[in-house]
Design a protein around this nucleic acid. Structure first.
Length: 675
RNA sequence: GGCCCGGUAGCUCAGUCGGUUAGAGCAGGGGACUCAUAAUCCCUUGGUCGGGGGUUCGAGUCCCUCCCGGGCUACCA
C-alpha cells in the first residue's frame, strides 16, 4: 500500500544566498523525495523562504527599500538556484504569507488555551535613534566583570562571563552608535516546562530522532526544568503582530516552522486537498530534514507547538552535519565558500548531486567535499562505468531496436533486480552512500559482460546479427536498471535513458523487468566529464568574490561596525597605557585551558613577564617563540587559575582562530615604549 | 570538565549476532583490448584494524583504559 508522506527542508533565511553547504540538505531531501515518488508513494515536498526578524528589517533600512522588496528579490534568487540544481519542490512558499498568518493565529490560540502562555515585563535596551529594541548581538559595551571594552550584549569573550545586556557598562547600539536607553516591554513566553514530560517521552521513545540527538537532548535540556521561551518581540519588528498582544510580534522562530504548514496549505489549495489530510492524519508521515545547528527548534519547540495545537508530530527529524571542503571549514579567502550560482557558472549540478549521494549517510557527522575525490568519483563511476555501458552498445542496435525476448545473460539482470530491495532500504534509511556503493557494484559486474561478448566483433559478421542484438539488449537493460536506481540522484540521466530507449522511467519497479522490443534512438552524450580546470575556475571565482582576498583596498565595513567606537579620550588617557615592544622567549599551550597560551616575554635585559594570552586557536606556541609583540606592560597583574598574568599581548580580531597579534616593524627593540 | 561521533590500505569507506586467510572502489604497478567520453577488461602491490589491557576456544567486532581528530556544552581567564 502506498505511503503518504509530507517532507520538508529547513527554510532558508531571506538574508543570504544559497551556498554549497545549504545544498547538502536540499539535495539530500530532494533525492529522498524523488525516491519516495519513484516508489509510488504519495509524497509532497514543501519549503519556503524564512523572511521575518530583525536582520531583514535592518537590511531593508540599510538598502532603503521595504522588507517586502528585499525578501521578494531574495526569494526569486533562491528559487532559481534550487531549480537549477534540480530540486523539485511541490510548493515553495514564504513565511510572510496570509496562509502563514492564519495558521500562526490558530496555533497561538491553542497554545494560549492550553494555559502555556505567560506574560512578563522585561527590561531591554532600546535604540532611540533607530527606534528599535536591540537584540543582544546588536549591543556592545564594556564588560561589567572584567572591564573589557567592546563586548557583546550577552557575554564577554575576554572573561567569558555571561550577563544581560542591561549590565553592560557604557552600552552602544551597533545600528546607530547611539547610547541605548532602558525600556520596559511585556513579552509573551511559552512555558515549555509544562511540556517536559511529553518532550522527554517523544524524544527518547518515538523513534523520530537519531540516537545521538536523543542523547544530546536528554543530556543538555531534558534533565532540568526547561526555560520559558520568549516568543514575542515588541514593535518595530518585521513579522506578524500577535492578535491578543497588540504591539508585539511573533519572534521569527515561532512563525518559521509554521511556514511548513502554510506552504502545505498553498499546495492543498492548488490541488484540491485539505491541510488536515497532511497534518492531522495518522496515516501521513511527516519528515523534516534539518542541519544540526537548528536541532532544538525542531526537537523541542516545534513538537511542543504541534502537540499543543493537535497536529501530527514529526515522524522523523533527519539531522545532518555541516559541509567542509578538503577537510576544512568553508573559507571565503580560500575560495571554498562557494555560492550555488558560482558553482552553476562552471559545473553541472549532476556532479554535486552524485558526490553528495556517495557521502551522505543517516548520521549527523560532517560531510567533506574533497575536490579531488569529487572529480574522480563522478568520472570513474558515472562516466566510466554507467554511461559507458550505453555509449558502447546503443549504436549497434539503432537499426534493430531491442530484442523481443530477453536473452540468457547468466543471471546478471535477475541479480541486479534482486539487489533493488537492498538499494531501496538504503535510500529509505537515508544511507545514500550505501545505495551508491551497491549500485556501483552492479555496474562493475555489467561492463565485463560487454567485454566478453564483444559486440564490435559481432557487428563485422552479418551471420551474428541476432546475437549482436541480444548482447546489446542485455547491456542496455543493465544500463537502464542502473539509471532507474540512480534516478533519485540523477533525474536527468533517467530522463535521457527514457528518451534513448523510448520508454520513460517513472517507477522503481521498472527495474525488475527487462525492457524489450522498443526502438533505440541515436545515442547522444549524456554527460561530460568533470574537468579539474573548471573546478579550479570555480574556486578562483569564489575567491574574487570574497572581500578578504580582493587585491585592491576594498575593505569591508563590517569589522569597524562590529565594534562601536569607544568614547573619546585624551592624550593623557592614552599615556596611562604603557605599551612596550617585547620578545616572546618562551611559549607553551596551557593544556587544561581551551584558549590559553602561556608566554614568557622579554622586555630586554632581565625584564621578564609571564603572560597568559587567549590565542591558542590561532597560533602554535612554537611559531611565537622569538617574534616581537606589543605588550601592555603596566596592566595590573591578574591571578588566573593557571598562574599570575603580568600583562597582555595586543591583538585584533573577533577571537577564536581569528586573532591577529600585532608586531612592530623591523628594527624595534624589546623594551621600547609605543607612543 | 561533561557529553556525542569517529580512528580499518596512499585516499574514500564496507565489515551483520564475536567465527575461516580483514574487503571494495579510487589511486599506484604490469598486461590486454580498441565498441566506448584516453572510457573498458584481466592480473597485481599495499593493512600491527589508533595504543595497551581484559573476557572468550576464537576479538576489527564485546568490556576497561589511554591517545588522537571533530562537534556540542560548561567553567576558567
Amino acid at each position: 500500500m502506498p505511503r503518504q508522506l509530507l517532507v520538508t527542508s529547513a527554510l532558508p533565511y531571506a538574508n543570504g544566498h544559497i551556498h554549497l553547504g545549504h545544498l547538502v540538505e536540499y539535495l539530500q531531501t530532494d533525492m529522498w523525495v524523488r525516491f519516495q515518488k519513484l516508489r509510488g508513494n504519495r509524497c509532497i515536498y514543501v519549503c519556503a523562504d524564512d523572511t521575518h526578524g530583525t536582520a531583514i528589517m535592518i537590511r531593508a533600512r540599510q538598502e532603503g527599500r521595504s522588507e517586502v522588496e528585499v525578501i521578494a528579490d531574495m526569494q526569486a534568487a533562491h528559487e532559481r538556484d534550487f531549480a537549477d540544481f534540480g530540486i523539485a519542490f511541490d510548493n515553495y512558499g514564504s513565511t510572510n504569507s496570509e496562509e502563514n498568518r492564519t495558521l500562526c493565529h490558530a496555533i497561538w490560540k491553542s497554545i494560549r488555551a492550553a494555559g502555556l502562555v505567560t506574560e512578563r515585563e522585561i527590561e531591554q535596551l532600546y535604540d532611540p535613534e533607530a527606534k528599535t529594541f536591540l537584540a543582544d548581538r546588536f549591543v556592545k559595551g564594556t564588560c561589567p566583570k572584567c572591564n573589557s571594552p567592546n563586548q557583546y550584549g550577552d557575554n564577554c569573550d575576554k572573561c567569558g562571563s555571561t550577563y544581560s545586556p542591561t549590565e553592560l557598562i557604557n552600552p552602544q547600539s551597533t545600528l546607530s552608535g547611539a547610547a541605548p536607553v532602558m525600556k520596559k516591554a511585556v513579552h509573551e513566553f511559552i512555558v515549555l516546562e509544562k511540556l517536559r514530560p511529553f518532550l522527554t517521552e517523544w524524544s527518547q521513545n518515538s523513534g523520530a530522532l537519531q540516537p545521538e540527538i536523543a542523547n544530546y537532548l536528554a543530556g543538555h535540556f531534558l534533565g532540568d526544568a526547561l526555560r520559558d521561551w520568549d516568543v514575542s518581540r515588541p514593535a518595530p519588528y518585521f513579522g506578524f503582530e500577535i492578535p491578543d498582544s497588540p504591539g508585539n510580534y511573533w519572534y521569527v522562530w515561532f512563525d518559521a516552522p509554521i511556514g511548513y504548514m502554510a506552504s502545505t496549505q498553498q499546495w492543498c489549495d492548488r490541488n484540491g486537498s485539505q491541510l488536515n489530510d497532511w497534518w492531522k492524519n495518522t496515516n501521513c508521515e511527516v519528515h523534516h530534514f534539518i542541519g544540526k545547528d537548528i536541532t532544538y527548534f525542531h526537537t523541542l519547540f516545534w513538537p511542543g507547538m504541534l502537540k499543543t495545537a493537535g497536529y501530527s508530530l514529526p515522524t522523523k527529524v533527519h539531522i545532518h552535519g555541516f559541509l567542509t571542503v578538503d577537510g576544512e571549514k568553508m573559507s571565503k579567502s580560500k575560495g571554498t565558500f562557494v555560492m550555488a550560482r558560482t558553482y552553476l557558472n562552471h559545473l553541472d549540478p549532476s556532479y554535486l548531486r552524485y558526490y553528495y549521494a556517495t557521502k551522505l549517510t543517516s548520521g549527523v557527522g560532517d560531510l567533506d567535499l574533497s575536490l579531488e575525490e569529487f572529480t574522480n568519483k563522478f568520472n570513474s563511476d558515472i562516466v566510466g562505468k554507467v554511461v559507458n555501458l550505453a555509449s558502447r552498445s546503443a549504436k549497434f542496435v539503432e537499426q534493430t531496436g531491442l530484442a523481443k525476448t530477453y536473452p540468457d545473460d547468466g543471471g546478471l539482470f535477475a541479480n541486479a533486480a534482486a539487489a533493488g530491495a537492498e538499494i531501496a532500504d538504503a535510500y529509505e534509511a537515508c544511507d545514500f552512500s550505501r545505495a551508491m556503493r551497491t549500485i556501483m557494484a552492479l555496474a562493475d559486474a555489467a561492463n565485463p559482460f560487454v567485454e566478453e561478448n564483444k559486440p564490435w566483433e559481432l557487428k563485422k559478421d552479418p551471420a551474428q546479427a541476432e546475437r549482436l542484438q541480444q548482447v546489446c539488449t542485455i547491456a542496455l537493460n543493465l544500463f537502464r536498471q542502473l539509471a532507474i536506481y540512480l534516478a533519485p540522484v540523477l533525474p536527468k540521466l533517467a530522463e535521457q535513458t527514457g528518451e534513448l530507449l523510448n520508454d520513460p522511467i517513472q517507477n522503481w519497479d521498472q527495474s525488475q523487468t527487462p525492457l524489450l522490443g522498443t526502438k533505440v534512438n541515436k545515442f547522444k552524450h549524456m554527460t561530460t566529464r568533470v574537468e579539474p580546470e573548471k573546478l579550479t575556475a570555480m574556486i578562483e571565482e569564489s575567491k574574487v568574490e570574497a572581500p578578504a582576498a580582493t587585491p585592491t583596498w576594498d575593505d569591508s565595513p563590517e569589522p569597524f561596525a562590529a565594534e562601536p567606537l569607544a568614547p573619546e579620550c585624551t592624550i593623557d588617557d592614552f599615556t596611562k597605557v604603557d605599551l612596550r615592544v617585547a620578545r616572546v622567549v618562551e611559549a607553551k599551550a596551557v593544556p587544561e585551558a581551551n584558549k590559553l597560551v602561556q608566554l614568557t616575554l622579554s622586555l630586554g635585559g632581565e625584564h621578564r613577564r609571564n603572560v597568559f594570552a587567549g590565542i591558542k586557536a590561532a597560533y602554535k606556541p612554537e611559531d611565537l617563540v622569538g617574534r616581537l609583540v606589543i605588550c601592555v606592560a603596566n596592566l595590573a597583574p591578574r591571578k588566573m587559575k593557571f598562574g599570575l598574568s603580568e600583562g597582555m599581548v595586543v591583538a585584533s580580531g573577533p577571537g577564536g582562530a581569528e586573532v591577529y597579534v600585532l608586531s612592530p616593524d623591523e628594527g624595534a627593540k624589546p623594551g621600547q615604549r609605543v607612543h
